[in-house]
Simulated assay, not measured.
Amino acid sequence: MVVEDEPVIRMIAVEMLEDAGWSVVEFATADDAIAFCRRPENDFAAVITDINMPGDMDGLDLASLVVSSRPDAFVVVTSGRYQERPADLAERVRFLPKPWKAGDLLAAVTGVSGPGSR
């Protein structure tokens, strides 16, 4: 899952992950991604989310929900505003400052799990 409000950045991340063999769903807001996550029939292996997005929830809220409700899912949080890992991120969440390079994002996700059909 890629959650990013900037369409070009979201498109690049989705294309890169699909090229690496992942099936990807994408959202422009954390609100929409959280609604998706709360439906038990929706399965996913990893979440890549920006922190600052429009809506009532942000990427930190999304990361917290995923960590608490989907212990098998991997989370990468990105931000152009923060250059260091925010203190309130769960330990198993990786932080990747923007601008990231394609290889850095892929390494953050595939370093833990391989491509899947989720």
Rank of each mutant, 00 (worst) to 15 (best):
D19W: 06
W22Y: 08
S23K: 14
V24C: 02
V25P: 02
V25R: 03
E26P: 07
E26R: 07
A28V: 00
A30T: 07
D31R: 09
D31S: 10
D31W: 13
D32E: 07
D32F: 08
A33E: 02
A33D: 04
A35P: 04
C37R: 00
R38D: 13
R39I: 11
E41W: 00
N42P: 09
N42H: 14
D43C: 07
D43N: 11
F44P: 08
A45I: 09
A45S: 11
A46E: 00
I48W: 00
I48F: 00
T49G: 00
T49P: 00
D50P: 03
D50H: 09
D50M: 08
I51L: 04
I51M: 05
N52D: 06
M53I: 12
P54I: 05
D56T: 15
M57A: 15
M57D: 15
M57T: 13
D58Q: 10
D58I: 13
G59K: 01
L60M: 12
L60Y: 05
L60H: 10
L60K: 10
L60C: 06
L60V: 12
D61P: 15
A63P: 05
S64Y: 09
S64F: 04
L65G: 04
L65M: 04
V66F: 01
V67W: 04
V67D: 05
S68Y: 02
S68R: 15
S68W: 06
S69Q: 03
R70Q: 04
P71Y: 02
D72Q: 07
V75S: 02
V76G: 09
V77T: 10
T78Q: 04
S79C: 06
G80S: 12
Y82N: 08
Y82F: 12
Q83L: 07
E84S: 13
E84A: 14
R85H: 07
P86E: 07
A87Y: 14
A87W: 06
D88T: 05
A90M: 03
A90F: 11
E91Q: 13
E91W: 07
R92H: 05
R92Q: 10
V93W: 01
R94H: 14
K98F: 05
K98H: 08
K98W: 09
K98L: 07
K98V: 09
P99W: 03
P99F: 06
P99A: 01
W100C: 07
K101G: 08
G103Q: 14
G103S: 11
D104A: 13
L106D: 02
A107W: 15
V109M: 14
T110N: 15
